[in-house]
Amino acid sequence: MRKIGITGQNGFVGNCLFNKLSLLKEEFVLVPFDKSFFESEELLRTWAIQCDVIVHLAAMNRHPDPNIIHDTNVKLVELLLKALNDTDKRPHIIFSSSTQEERDNLYGKSKREGRELFANWAKNQKSTFTGLLIPNVFGPFGKPFYNSVVATFCHQLCNNQAPKIEQDGFLKLIYVDELAEIIISIIRNNTDNPSLAIPPTQEIYVSSILEKLISYKERYFEQGIFPQLEDRFSINLFNTFRSYIDHSSYFPYMLKQHADNRGVFVEMVKLEQGGQVSFSTTYPEVTRGNHFHTRKIERFLVIKGKALIQLRRYNTEEVLNFELSGDKPSYVDMPVWYTHNIKNIGVEELYTVFWINEFFDTKDPDTYFEIV
Protein backbone atom coordinates (compact mmCIF):
# COMPACT_ATOMS: atom_id res chain seq x y z
CA MET A 1 0.00 0.00 0.00
CA ARG A 2 1.24 3.45 -0.87
CA LYS A 3 1.91 5.88 1.95
CA ILE A 4 0.39 9.32 1.44
CA GLY A 5 1.41 12.53 3.18
CA ILE A 6 -0.50 15.81 2.90
CA THR A 7 1.03 19.12 3.90
CA GLY A 8 -1.77 21.35 5.10
CA GLN A 9 -3.86 18.31 6.04
CA ASN A 10 -5.86 20.35 8.54
CA GLY A 11 -6.74 23.02 6.00
CA PHE A 12 -9.87 23.25 3.89
CA VAL A 13 -8.85 21.01 0.97
CA GLY A 14 -6.37 19.00 3.01
CA ASN A 15 -8.94 17.94 5.60
CA CYS A 16 -11.37 16.77 2.92
CA LEU A 17 -8.65 14.82 1.08
CA PHE A 18 -7.33 13.31 4.32
CA ASN A 19 -10.82 12.15 5.31
CA LYS A 20 -11.56 10.64 1.91
CA LEU A 21 -8.25 8.77 1.87
CA SER A 22 -8.89 7.52 5.41
CA LEU A 23 -11.94 5.69 4.02
CA LEU A 24 -9.67 3.75 1.63
CA LYS A 25 -7.70 1.84 4.26
CA GLU A 26 -7.17 -1.19 2.01
CA GLU A 27 -5.49 0.98 -0.61
CA PHE A 28 -3.57 3.76 1.15
CA VAL A 29 -1.77 4.49 4.41
CA LEU A 30 -1.83 8.08 5.65
CA VAL A 31 1.32 9.63 7.11
CA PRO A 32 0.02 12.39 9.43
CA PHE A 33 1.50 15.88 8.99
CA ASP A 34 1.68 18.82 11.37
CA LYS A 35 2.52 22.37 10.35
CA SER A 36 5.25 22.42 13.01
CA PHE A 37 7.26 20.09 10.76
CA PHE A 38 8.15 23.10 8.61
CA GLU A 39 9.89 24.59 11.66
CA SER A 40 12.21 21.61 12.10
CA GLU A 41 14.44 20.17 9.38
CA GLU A 42 14.68 16.89 11.28
CA LEU A 43 10.91 16.48 11.69
CA LEU A 44 10.30 17.37 8.05
CA ARG A 45 12.92 14.85 6.87
CA THR A 46 11.52 12.14 9.14
CA TRP A 47 8.04 12.73 7.75
CA ALA A 48 9.07 13.01 4.09
CA ILE A 49 11.13 9.81 4.06
CA GLN A 50 8.00 7.83 4.96
CA CYS A 51 5.93 9.08 2.01
CA ASP A 52 5.47 7.46 -1.39
CA VAL A 53 3.23 10.37 -2.41
CA ILE A 54 3.29 13.92 -1.05
CA VAL A 55 0.36 16.24 -1.74
CA HIS A 56 1.64 19.75 -1.05
CA LEU A 57 -1.35 21.88 -0.09
CA ALA A 58 0.17 24.03 2.67
CA ALA A 59 0.10 27.68 1.63
CA MET A 60 -0.84 31.17 2.72
CA ASN A 61 -3.84 32.59 0.84
CA ARG A 62 -4.40 35.95 2.48
CA HIS A 63 -2.34 38.53 4.36
CA PRO A 64 -2.32 42.34 4.45
CA ASP A 65 1.17 42.24 2.92
CA PRO A 66 1.19 40.37 -0.44
CA ASN A 67 4.98 40.01 -0.24
CA ILE A 68 4.61 37.87 2.88
CA ILE A 69 2.18 35.62 0.99
CA HIS A 70 4.67 35.24 -1.86
CA ASP A 71 7.72 34.63 0.32
CA THR A 72 5.91 32.20 2.64
CA ASN A 73 4.59 30.01 -0.17
CA VAL A 74 7.91 29.83 -2.00
CA LYS A 75 9.74 29.12 1.27
CA LEU A 76 7.46 26.16 2.06
CA VAL A 77 8.32 24.62 -1.31
CA GLU A 78 12.03 25.17 -0.77
CA LEU A 79 11.90 23.60 2.70
CA LEU A 80 10.13 20.51 1.39
CA LEU A 81 12.59 20.13 -1.51
CA LYS A 82 15.54 20.43 0.86
CA ALA A 83 14.08 17.68 3.07
CA LEU A 84 13.70 15.44 0.02
CA ASN A 85 17.22 16.12 -1.17
CA ASP A 86 18.62 15.44 2.30
CA THR A 87 16.91 12.04 2.41
CA ASP A 88 17.33 11.03 -1.24
CA LYS A 89 13.61 10.32 -1.17
CA ARG A 90 11.84 10.59 -4.55
CA PRO A 91 8.08 10.45 -3.93
CA HIS A 92 5.38 11.43 -6.38
CA ILE A 93 4.77 15.13 -5.69
CA ILE A 94 1.31 16.62 -6.27
CA PHE A 95 1.24 20.40 -5.95
CA SER A 96 -1.87 22.55 -5.68
CA SER A 97 -1.35 25.63 -7.76
CA SER A 98 -4.09 27.99 -8.91
CA THR A 99 -5.61 29.49 -12.02
CA GLN A 100 -4.46 32.75 -10.44
CA GLU A 101 -1.07 31.95 -11.96
CA GLU A 102 -2.44 33.85 -14.95
CA ARG A 103 -3.10 36.98 -12.90
CA ASP A 104 -0.68 39.75 -12.04
CA ASN A 105 -0.59 39.25 -8.26
CA LEU A 106 1.99 37.95 -5.82
CA TYR A 107 -0.15 35.00 -4.71
CA GLY A 108 -0.40 33.76 -8.29
CA LYS A 109 3.30 34.41 -8.79
CA SER A 110 4.18 32.37 -5.69
CA LYS A 111 2.13 29.46 -6.98
CA ARG A 112 3.73 29.59 -10.42
CA GLU A 113 7.23 29.75 -8.95
CA GLY A 114 6.50 26.88 -6.57
CA ARG A 115 5.19 24.71 -9.37
CA GLU A 116 8.25 25.43 -11.48
CA LEU A 117 10.59 24.58 -8.59
CA PHE A 118 8.87 21.20 -8.16
CA ALA A 119 8.84 20.55 -11.91
CA ASN A 120 12.56 21.24 -12.27
CA TRP A 121 13.36 19.07 -9.25
CA ALA A 122 11.30 16.18 -10.59
CA LYS A 123 12.91 16.47 -14.03
CA ASN A 124 16.42 16.42 -12.58
CA GLN A 125 15.60 13.57 -10.21
CA LYS A 126 13.60 11.61 -12.80
CA SER A 127 10.67 11.63 -10.39
CA THR A 128 6.92 11.97 -10.92
CA PHE A 129 5.33 15.39 -10.52
CA THR A 130 1.77 16.66 -10.99
CA GLY A 131 1.22 20.41 -10.92
CA LEU A 132 -2.49 21.23 -10.55
CA LEU A 133 -3.98 24.47 -11.83
CA ILE A 134 -7.09 24.61 -9.67
CA PRO A 135 -10.10 26.95 -10.04
CA ASN A 136 -11.97 28.41 -7.06
CA VAL A 137 -12.80 25.70 -4.50
CA PHE A 138 -15.90 25.71 -2.30
CA GLY A 139 -17.47 23.24 0.10
CA PRO A 140 -18.32 22.47 3.74
CA PHE A 141 -16.14 23.77 6.57
CA GLY A 142 -14.22 26.34 4.54
CA LYS A 143 -12.86 29.30 6.47
CA PRO A 144 -14.92 32.47 5.89
CA PHE A 145 -13.09 35.58 4.70
CA TYR A 146 -10.23 33.28 3.69
CA ASN A 147 -10.99 30.22 1.57
CA SER A 148 -13.79 31.43 -0.68
CA VAL A 149 -16.57 33.94 -1.15
CA VAL A 150 -19.03 31.03 -0.76
CA ALA A 151 -17.70 30.34 2.74
CA THR A 152 -18.00 34.02 3.61
CA PHE A 153 -21.59 34.31 2.34
CA CYS A 154 -22.67 31.12 4.17
CA HIS A 155 -21.11 32.28 7.43
CA GLN A 156 -22.75 35.69 7.17
CA LEU A 157 -26.20 34.38 6.32
CA CYS A 158 -26.17 31.80 9.12
CA ASN A 159 -25.19 34.55 11.58
CA ASN A 160 -27.82 37.06 10.41
CA GLN A 161 -25.26 39.28 8.73
CA ALA A 162 -25.82 40.99 5.38
CA PRO A 163 -23.39 39.84 2.66
CA LYS A 164 -22.12 42.45 0.24
CA ILE A 165 -20.79 41.91 -3.25
CA GLU A 166 -17.65 43.93 -3.86
CA GLN A 167 -17.45 42.89 -7.51
CA ASP A 168 -19.92 40.67 -9.36
CA GLY A 169 -17.35 38.45 -11.03
CA PHE A 170 -17.90 35.28 -13.03
CA LEU A 171 -16.51 32.41 -10.96
CA LYS A 172 -15.20 29.07 -12.13
CA LEU A 173 -15.83 26.67 -9.26
CA ILE A 174 -15.11 23.13 -8.19
CA TYR A 175 -16.58 21.40 -5.13
CA VAL A 176 -13.96 20.32 -2.61
CA ASP A 177 -15.09 16.67 -2.70
CA GLU A 178 -14.80 16.67 -6.50
CA LEU A 179 -11.27 18.04 -6.27
CA ALA A 180 -10.33 15.41 -3.68
CA GLU A 181 -11.62 12.66 -5.99
CA ILE A 182 -9.46 14.04 -8.84
CA ILE A 183 -6.37 14.03 -6.60
CA ILE A 184 -7.08 10.45 -5.53
CA SER A 185 -7.36 9.46 -9.20
CA ILE A 186 -4.02 11.16 -9.89
CA ILE A 187 -2.44 9.17 -7.04
CA ARG A 188 -3.87 5.91 -8.36
CA ASN A 189 -2.76 6.57 -11.94
CA ASN A 190 0.64 8.01 -11.00
CA THR A 191 -0.12 10.94 -13.31
CA ASP A 192 2.97 12.81 -14.49
CA ASN A 193 2.02 16.28 -15.72
CA PRO A 194 3.73 19.52 -14.59
CA SER A 195 0.80 21.69 -15.67
CA LEU A 196 -2.53 19.92 -15.34
CA ALA A 197 -5.52 22.25 -15.62
CA ILE A 198 -8.41 21.07 -13.43
CA PRO A 199 -11.68 21.98 -15.17
CA PRO A 200 -14.36 23.76 -13.13
CA THR A 201 -17.61 21.90 -12.57
CA GLN A 202 -19.66 25.10 -12.38
CA GLU A 203 -19.37 28.59 -13.83
CA ILE A 204 -21.61 31.18 -12.22
CA TYR A 205 -21.79 34.84 -11.22
CA VAL A 206 -21.18 35.80 -7.60
CA SER A 207 -24.62 37.44 -7.51
CA SER A 208 -26.26 34.17 -8.60
CA ILE A 209 -24.49 32.28 -5.82
CA LEU A 210 -25.70 34.79 -3.25
CA GLU A 211 -29.23 34.63 -4.64
CA LYS A 212 -29.26 30.85 -4.19
CA LEU A 213 -27.84 31.05 -0.68
CA ILE A 214 -30.38 33.68 0.38
CA SER A 215 -33.15 31.40 -0.85
CA TYR A 216 -31.69 28.54 1.21
CA LYS A 217 -31.71 30.75 4.29
CA GLU A 218 -35.31 31.83 3.73
CA ARG A 219 -36.68 28.40 2.90
CA TYR A 220 -34.57 26.02 5.01
CA PHE A 221 -33.03 28.06 7.83
CA GLU A 222 -36.11 30.15 8.59
CA GLN A 223 -39.02 27.93 7.46
CA GLY A 224 -37.61 24.40 7.70
CA ILE A 225 -38.39 23.66 4.04
CA PHE A 226 -36.00 21.63 1.92
CA PRO A 227 -35.53 23.75 -1.23
CA GLN A 228 -35.64 22.53 -4.79
CA LEU A 229 -32.15 21.32 -5.68
CA GLU A 230 -32.20 21.00 -9.42
CA ASP A 231 -28.67 19.76 -10.07
CA ARG A 232 -25.52 18.46 -8.42
CA PHE A 233 -24.11 21.97 -7.96
CA SER A 234 -27.22 23.02 -6.03
CA ILE A 235 -26.93 19.99 -3.76
CA ASN A 236 -23.26 20.74 -3.13
CA LEU A 237 -24.00 24.40 -2.46
CA PHE A 238 -26.87 23.51 -0.10
CA ASN A 239 -24.69 21.05 1.83
CA THR A 240 -22.03 23.75 2.05
CA PHE A 241 -24.60 26.21 3.45
CA ARG A 242 -25.82 23.66 6.02
CA SER A 243 -22.29 23.15 7.35
CA TYR A 244 -22.25 26.75 8.65
CA ILE A 245 -25.37 26.34 10.80
CA ASP A 246 -24.63 26.11 14.52
CA HIS A 247 -26.31 22.76 15.10
CA SER A 248 -25.89 22.94 18.86
CA SER A 249 -28.22 25.94 19.08
CA TYR A 250 -30.42 25.44 15.98
CA PHE A 251 -31.55 21.85 16.66
CA PRO A 252 -33.76 20.20 17.66
CA TYR A 253 -36.21 22.17 15.52
CA MET A 254 -39.57 22.21 17.27
CA LEU A 255 -42.57 21.45 15.08
CA LYS A 256 -45.92 23.20 15.38
CA GLN A 257 -48.72 21.00 16.67
CA HIS A 258 -52.30 21.54 15.48
CA ALA A 259 -54.57 20.05 18.17
CA ASP A 260 -58.34 19.64 18.31
CA ASN A 261 -60.85 17.13 19.72
CA ARG A 262 -59.65 14.49 17.25
CA GLY A 263 -56.02 14.60 18.36
CA VAL A 264 -52.87 16.28 17.02
CA PHE A 265 -51.72 17.02 13.46
CA VAL A 266 -48.05 17.85 12.76
CA GLU A 267 -46.41 18.82 9.45
CA MET A 268 -43.13 16.88 9.50
CA VAL A 269 -41.22 17.39 6.24
CA LYS A 270 -41.86 20.14 3.73
CA LEU A 271 -40.21 19.46 0.39
CA GLU A 272 -39.58 21.29 -2.83
CA GLN A 273 -37.98 18.09 -4.08
CA GLY A 274 -38.40 14.32 -3.76
CA GLY A 275 -36.48 11.68 -1.91
CA GLN A 276 -37.60 8.92 0.41
CA VAL A 277 -39.55 8.91 3.69
CA SER A 278 -39.24 5.96 6.05
CA PHE A 279 -40.14 5.18 9.65
CA SER A 280 -38.77 2.89 12.32
CA THR A 281 -39.69 1.56 15.72
CA THR A 282 -36.87 1.08 18.21
CA TYR A 283 -36.96 -0.84 21.48
CA PRO A 284 -35.68 0.78 24.71
CA GLU A 285 -31.88 1.04 25.06
CA VAL A 286 -31.39 0.13 21.36
CA THR A 287 -29.22 2.38 19.15
CA ARG A 288 -29.55 2.78 15.40
CA GLY A 289 -27.19 4.41 12.93
CA ASN A 290 -23.51 5.13 13.72
CA HIS A 291 -22.68 6.06 10.16
CA PHE A 292 -22.17 9.17 8.06
CA HIS A 293 -22.77 10.41 4.53
CA THR A 294 -20.65 12.64 2.30
CA ARG A 295 -23.43 13.96 0.06
CA LYS A 296 -26.85 12.83 1.31
CA ILE A 297 -29.29 15.16 3.07
CA GLU A 298 -31.15 13.51 5.94
CA ARG A 299 -33.70 14.40 8.64
CA PHE A 300 -34.66 12.42 11.77
CA LEU A 301 -38.08 13.20 13.31
CA VAL A 302 -39.17 11.74 16.63
CA ILE A 303 -42.95 11.40 16.89
CA LYS A 304 -43.35 9.01 19.83
CA GLY A 305 -41.14 8.10 22.77
CA LYS A 306 -37.84 9.61 23.88
CA ALA A 307 -34.63 9.64 21.88
CA LEU A 308 -31.02 10.74 22.13
CA ILE A 309 -29.57 11.81 18.78
CA GLN A 310 -25.80 12.20 18.64
CA LEU A 311 -23.61 13.79 15.98
CA ARG A 312 -19.83 14.00 15.62
CA ARG A 313 -17.89 15.42 12.73
CA TYR A 314 -15.64 12.74 11.22
CA ASN A 315 -12.06 12.78 12.55
CA THR A 316 -12.97 15.21 15.35
CA GLU A 317 -13.88 14.58 18.99
CA GLU A 318 -16.76 16.90 19.95
CA VAL A 319 -20.10 15.09 20.24
CA LEU A 320 -23.38 17.00 19.92
CA ASN A 321 -26.24 15.52 21.98
CA PHE A 322 -29.93 16.20 21.35
CA GLU A 323 -32.78 14.80 23.42
CA LEU A 324 -36.11 14.64 21.57
CA SER A 325 -39.56 13.60 22.71
CA GLY A 326 -42.70 12.64 20.86
CA ASP A 327 -44.60 14.83 23.33
CA LYS A 328 -43.06 17.78 21.51
CA PRO A 329 -42.45 16.54 17.95
CA SER A 330 -39.12 17.83 16.64
CA TYR A 331 -36.31 16.95 14.26
CA VAL A 332 -32.56 17.08 13.77
CA ASP A 333 -30.91 17.24 10.34
CA MET A 334 -27.65 15.42 9.62
CA PRO A 335 -24.82 17.47 8.09
CA VAL A 336 -22.48 15.80 5.60
CA TRP A 337 -19.38 14.22 7.16
CA TYR A 338 -21.09 13.98 10.59
CA THR A 339 -21.48 10.45 11.92
CA HIS A 340 -24.81 10.12 13.70
CA ASN A 341 -27.00 7.75 15.67
CA ILE A 342 -30.31 7.62 17.49
CA LYS A 343 -30.98 5.76 20.76
CA ASN A 344 -34.23 4.99 22.54
CA ILE A 345 -33.73 6.43 26.05
CA GLY A 346 -37.35 6.01 27.10
CA VAL A 347 -39.37 3.12 28.50
CA GLU A 348 -41.70 2.69 25.52
CA GLU A 349 -41.10 1.99 21.85
CA LEU A 350 -39.55 4.89 19.94
CA TYR A 351 -41.21 5.96 16.67
CA THR A 352 -38.97 7.82 14.25
CA VAL A 353 -39.61 9.13 10.76
CA PHE A 354 -36.64 9.50 8.41
CA TRP A 355 -36.40 11.54 5.23
CA ILE A 356 -33.44 11.35 2.86
CA ASN A 357 -33.03 13.07 -0.50
CA GLU A 358 -32.12 10.01 -2.55
CA PHE A 359 -33.00 6.32 -2.68
CA PHE A 360 -30.54 3.84 -1.20
CA ASP A 361 -28.27 2.44 -3.91
CA THR A 362 -26.33 -0.69 -2.95
CA LYS A 363 -23.74 0.13 -5.64
CA ASP A 364 -23.23 3.68 -4.35
CA PRO A 365 -24.57 3.80 -0.77
CA ASP A 366 -22.61 6.86 0.47
CA THR A 367 -22.90 5.34 3.94
CA TYR A 368 -19.79 4.83 6.08
CA PHE A 369 -19.84 3.02 9.44
CA GLU A 370 -18.34 5.08 12.28
CA ILE A 371 -19.22 4.97 15.98
CA VAL A 372 -20.25 8.40 17.25
Rank of each mutant, 00 (worst) to 15 (best):
M1K: 02
K3T: 04
I6D: 00
I6N: 05
G8A: 06
N10W: 02
F12M: 09
N15P: 06
L17M: 01
L21H: 03
S22P: 01
L24I: 05
K25G: 04
F28N: 01
V29A: 13
F33H: 15
F33R: 12
K35M: 13
K35R: 15
F37C: 14
W47E: 00
V53Y: 06
V53Q: 04
V55R: 00
M60G: 00
M60W: 03
I68C: 01
T72R: 01
K75L: 09
V77N: 08
L80F: 02
A83F: 05
A83Y: 03
I94F: 10
Q100A: 15
Q100N: 15
E101I: 15
L106V: 09
Y107M: 11
S110N: 02
S110R: 06
K111S: 04
G114S: 11
K123W: 05
K126C: 05
S127P: 00
F129T: 04
L132M: 09
L133M: 12
V137L: 06
P140Q: 00
P140R: 07
G142N: 03
K143M: 10
S148K: 01
C154W: 06
N160T: 09
A162H: 12
F170Q: 09
K172N: 13
I182F: 12
T191M: 06
A197E: 14
T201F: 04
Q202Y: 01
E203W: 02
I204L: 04
S207N: 10
I214N: 13
Y216E: 07
G224T: 08
I225S: 06
E230H: 11
D231E: 12
I235M: 01
I245K: 12
I245M: 11
S248M: 11
Y253D: 05
F265A: 14
E285T: 13
E285Y: 08
E285L: 11
V286T: 10
T287P: 01
R288F: 00
N290R: 03
F292E: 02
I297S: 01
E298K: 08
F300M: 11
K306N: 12
I309D: 00
L311D: 05
R312W: 03
R313Q: 15
N315I: 08
E318R: 14
L320Y: 12
E323W: 06
S330P: 07
M334C: 13
W337D: 14
K343E: 12
L350P: 09
Y351R: 10
Y351G: 07
T352Q: 13
W355L: 13
T362R: 10
